[in-house]
Design a protein around this nucleic acid. Structure first.
Lengths: 182, 182
DNA sequence: ACCTGAACACCGTTCAAGT
DNA sequence: ACCTGAACACCGTTCAAGT
């Protein structure tokens, strides 16, 4: 079976979910495909590009299912982004570091920006607001995912998903209230 | 001269500032001290512990110089945290990943939590709000620092510090307005 | 107590050579 | 065009042995 970019991303995604970002190495991806590590470099320029492709796929999954006319648009959008990230191990960290590299074609802020503009907020104002939402969601989920992993390793006591949800909602509420106060 | 935890943190900090987080390896820290890599493990359990110590130092620098009675307390606090992070290369990424590991003794949210409580907000409400501020600041500065580095490498066109500042202030304003709207 | 030497088990990346 | 083999220049970590 021919090695393609898509099959490589599939394999990388599987390793991410099963073993986490730390174990997502070029050699392990290659091994899982029955191929040598060097072969991957025919399809991807480097590891960061492969990671960006994985991040893009995660962000593109089940996107845009928000009800744009709803009262609490933004809250729903943030919740949707969070749940997309929670679908894959270490996804928040992966997306955050991919954004940092500048690679990565899917902009997670897009939906929020559109919604903000739909409520009559100007482009120049909507953009930094959308960024603030993304920073919050990524930061929150990063903490959530790494904490739940520390718990899985038995390093730290408990992970309370209800409390985590409450924290998330509280943060989103503050941001939404700040937007409404404008 | 005896090798101490403090001297190791100093050396690590110097390498961080000069070469960035990617080059902050145990071997390079050891080299810069004229010592073998193994020697560091007498003073730190592992690399993450050393990184946590560096993060703690950065967060502790020039802290608590806010005027607690000022009108725009929180905005000033956020600006102070941002400028502490901007003092050292890749500091936001370092602090974010240290928070993730659970090591790290300095909580960057502390100041914000105190201020929020000082305005009469209950502990249970102040905590998630403070976290939201920290997530935003770390996310913003992470992007700021990696973008300015990409520019330095000539990968991407421009970095506009004024625009970046505007984005930061806009984000903080939304959060502060959200708190005030409570 | 504190450090060296030397190893173990890995990395990302490159590239001639094969098919 | 696409992949292998094999190397290069690294990693974090461990640990017997030295002082």
């Amino acid at each position: 079976m021919a090695l393609t970019a898509e099959r490589i991303v599939n394999a990388a995604c599987a390793i991410l979910d099963a073993y986490g970002l730390a174990d997502l190495t070029m050699r392990r991806v290659a091994d899982s495909l029955g191929v040598k590590a060097g072969a991957l470099y025919w399809h991807f320029a480097n590891k960061q590009s492969l990671l960006a492709a994985v991040a893009d796929r995660i962000l593109a999954e089940s996107r845009g299912e928000e009800d744009v006319s709803a009262e609490d648009d933004l809250h729903q959008w943030a919740t949707n982004l969070r749940s997309r990230l929670l679908q894959h191990r270490d996804a928040a960290e992966l997306v955050a570091s991919t954004r940092a590299t500048g690679l990565g074609g899917v902009d997670p802020a897009e939906g929020a920006r559109e919604m903000l503009q739909a409520t009559g907020i100007g482009k120049e104002e909507a953009d930094p607001m959308a960024q603030a939402f993304v920073h919050f969601v990524l930061g929150h989920v990063m903490e959530e995912q790494t904490r739940s992993q520390l718990v899985a390793l038995g390093v730290v006591g408990e992970f309370d998903p209800v409390r985590s949800q409450r924290y998330f909602d509280a943060g989103v509420r503050v941001l939404v209230a700040g937007v409404d106060a404008r």
